[in-house]
Structures are given as structure tokens and as C-alpha cells.
Simulated assay, not measured.
Amino acid sequence: MALSISLVLLLGILVVVLIRGKSVKPGPAVVCVLFGFFLASTSMAPSINRFVTSVADMIGQIRL
């Protein structure tokens, strides 16, 4: 059975868990979210997207 989840949703849950667990304070978390938001509008976005997609595909091909 394959489980498909959006990377944005997964990272959002991770940020909430880190904030609630006091590992990351809300201020730095907001800065990181804003950095990602603005990074998405740069010329590096397609390269980052291809890299993340290839890593996700590689993980998806692992058979246990």
C-alpha cells in the first residue's frame, strides 16, 4: 500500500511539531517559512524542485 502525502503538508506538520516541542521558536520558524517563500520566486526554484522530486522518486522506489 502506497501512501502519498504532499511535501508542503509534511513540512508544515514538522514545523508545528518543532514549535510545540520547543525545538524551534515561532520567530525563527516564520523567518524560515518566509525564506522558502521568497526562494520559490528565484531562478533557483526549478533546480530545487527537480532535486526534491528526484529524491522523492528515489525514496518511492525503495522496496522493503
Results as ranks from 00 to 15, higher is better:
1 M>W: 04
2 A>M: 08
3 L>E: 12
4 S>M: 05
4 S>D: 11
5 I>L: 12
6 S>I: 02
7 L>M: 12
7 L>Y: 03
8 V>C: 04
8 V>W: 11
9 L>I: 09
10 L>C: 06
10 L>N: 02
10 L>H: 03
11 L>T: 05
11 L>C: 07
12 G>E: 11
12 G>P: 01
13 I>E: 12
13 I>V: 13
13 I>P: 00
13 I>Q: 09
14 L>G: 03
15 V>L: 11
16 V>K: 08
16 V>N: 03
16 V>Q: 09
16 V>P: 00
17 V>E: 10
17 V>Y: 06
17 V>H: 03
18 L>E: 14
18 L>P: 00
18 L>R: 07
19 I>R: 00
19 I>D: 00
20 R>F: 10
20 R>A: 13
21 G>A: 14
21 G>F: 01
21 G>V: 01
22 K>H: 09
22 K>S: 08
23 S>R: 12
23 S>F: 13
23 S>E: 10
23 S>L: 13
24 V>H: 00
26 P>R: 02
27 G>R: 10
28 P>A: 04
29 A>R: 04
29 A>H: 02
30 V>D: 01
31 V>R: 07
31 V>C: 06
31 V>P: 00
32 C>M: 14
32 C>F: 07
32 C>P: 00
32 C>A: 15
34 L>R: 01
34 L>E: 01
34 L>M: 12
34 L>G: 06
34 L>P: 00
35 F>E: 01
36 G>D: 06
36 G>I: 02
36 G>S: 07
37 F>C: 05
38 F>S: 01
38 F>W: 14
38 F>E: 07
39 L>Q: 04
39 L>W: 05
39 L>M: 10
39 L>G: 02
40 A>P: 01
40 A>T: 03
41 S>I: 08
42 T>Y: 07
42 T>N: 04
43 S>K: 12
43 S>Q: 13
43 S>A: 14
44 M>Q: 08
45 A>Y: 05
45 A>E: 11
45 A>G: 04
46 P>W: 02
46 P>I: 08
46 P>M: 06
46 P>S: 09
47 S>A: 13
47 S>R: 05
48 I>C: 02
50 R>Y: 02
50 R>D: 12
51 F>M: 13
51 F>R: 05
51 F>D: 06
51 F>A: 14
53 T>D: 12
53 T>P: 01
55 V>P: 00
55 V>L: 15
56 A>M: 13
56 A>H: 14
56 A>W: 12
56 A>C: 13
57 D>W: 01
59 I>L: 15
59 I>N: 02
60 G>M: 05
61 Q>D: 12
61 Q>E: 14
61 Q>I: 02
62 I>M: 11
63 R>E: 14
63 R>I: 13
63 R>T: 13
64 L>M: 08
64 L>V: 06
